[in-house]
Amino acid sequence: MAGFLVNASLIALLALIAILALRLHRLFAVVMLSGAFSLVAAAQFVVLDAVDVAFTEAAVGAGISTVLALATLSLLPAQEKPHSISLVPAFLATLTGLLLAVAVSDLPVFGDPKAPIHNHVAPEYIIGSEQAIGVPNIVTSVLASYRSFDTFGETLVVFTAVLAVLLIIGGYTRTPQKPKKAKRKTKGSQNAG
């Protein structure tokens, strides 16, 4: 019960942050809130026993992502153009949500230890991690041995990302075509507030 309360309140908190992040027009605030979102999400992951994930989410979402976003923002206008709520996307999003909601009612109960997901492959990891690999952290053993190919792929995704970024903005000759915006930033941010 308490677990449920913690869960629910954390998610409600997340929803609150998410809505705020999308409602605000000041991009800086948006980025900060998305950092906070990551932090809270990480807390939620801890509550759900996913410590490794929480670790990563905290380091990535709140750390690197925010820093990158700030670096980006320093080159961009500070304000979003105001938009009204658009109906079609809202409809689509609701539709997606409803579809999922319908699906959820069929799913195994949250936390049910009898759900197939806990009884098919996972037990073998838990046993195997102890015996065949000898690593207490099951996540590590699954990550680096059982599904190490996924992790290899993951490393390559990161590699790809840096390649992409270097190609896009690490450029040698690609000087920007319209320089006029570059200077304005400092002023803009100081007026902010």
Partner: peptide, 10 residues
Amino acid sequence: GLLYMLTGTL
């Protein structure tokens, strides 16, 4: 994810 939830395998 839904599939995995239902079957427990990937």
